[in-house]
Design a protein around this nucleic acid. Structure first.
Lengths: 115, 115
DNA sequence: CCCATTCATTGACATTCTTCGATGTCTGGG
DNA sequence: CCCAGACATCGAAGAATGTCAATGAATGGG
C-alpha cells in the first residue's frame, strides 16, 4: 500500500523542476509519482477542490460527504490517501474531523511541471 | 480503459486554476484526473523526463528502452498511455518511433495547481 | 451511564493496472 | 522476394484500486 513516503518529500519541495530539468532517478520518480497518483482520481480532485474552496480553508467530513454522492467510508478512504500523499492535513475537534490543504504542497507540485 | 478524452482538454488548457479556483464539477475533475493519473507512475514520469532531456526534445523507443530495465512491450504500453493522455506525441520516421512532449501540456497542468 | 452522532477501519468484491511473453505489422536492405 | 530489425498489439497473470456494508472507536448530551 502507498503509505507515507516520509523523508523523500524534500526532493519534491525543492526548487528545481525534476521533469523538465534533467533525467529523473528512480527514487525521485517514485516520490513524485505517489503525489500525482493521489491526484489521479476525480473524487480526490473534487475533495481537494472542496477543501480549498471552504470557509477558512478547511472542511469537515460531513460537508464533503454531502456533496459527493459516495458512501461515507469511501470518502474517508480517499481523504486518508490524500493525507498519506502529503496533500491534506487532518485535525479532529470534538466529534468532527477537519481537513485542510498542506500549505505549499500544490505549488511545489506545480513547480515540478514548469519549464 | 482511459482513452483519448477528446475535446474536454480545453477545460484544462484554460487560464484558470480548477483546483484552488472554486469547486470543480464532475467532468472537469474527470478530465484533469486522467492527466494526473497518467503521471502517477514512476516509469511514465521517467519517460517524460527522458524525452524532455533528449536531444531535440524527442527520443526513439530504442533509447528509452535501454534506460528503463523493462520489457519493450511494457515501455510501449506506457508511451501509449502518455500519448492518450495528451502529454506526448508520436511521429514515426522510417523504422523508428520518436516521442516528444506536447507543447504546453505540462505548463497547463502546472497552472491547474497554482494558487 | 447510556445513547446518538461522527468518523475510521475492516472485509469483501469487481474492476483496473502493470508487466510479461508471444505474436503481428511495417520498413529497409540484400 | 525474403529477412532482420523496430515497434505495436494481444492475451494472460498477479497486484493494486475503488467501492460498499458492517463494524469499531471516540465524543458529547441527557
Amino acid at each position: 500500500m502507498p503509505t507515507e513516503l516520509p523523508v523523500l518529500d524534500t526532493a519534491v519541495a525543492g526548487c528545481c523542476s525534476p521533469i523538465t530539468g534533467g533525467v529523473m532517478n528512480d527514487s525521485e520518480a517514485t516520490s513524485l509519482a505517489a503525489k500525482f497518483k493521489a491526484m489521479g482520481d476525480p473524487t480526490r480532485l473534487r475533495l481537494l477542490s472542496l477543501v480549498a474552496a471552504s470557509e477558512g480553508g478547511e472542511a469537515c467530513v460531513c460537508d464533503l460527504n454531502d456533496q459527493l454522492d459516495l458512501s461515507q467510508p469511501t470518502v474517508s478512504h480517499h481523504l486518508k490517501l490524500l493525507v498519506d500523499a502529503g496533500l491534506l492535513t487532518r485535525s479532529k475537534r470534538g466529534v468532527w474531523s477537519y481537513y485542510a490543504l498542506v500549505p505549499g504542497a500544490l505549488p511545489a507540485l506545480a513547480d515540478t511541471l514548469q519549464v
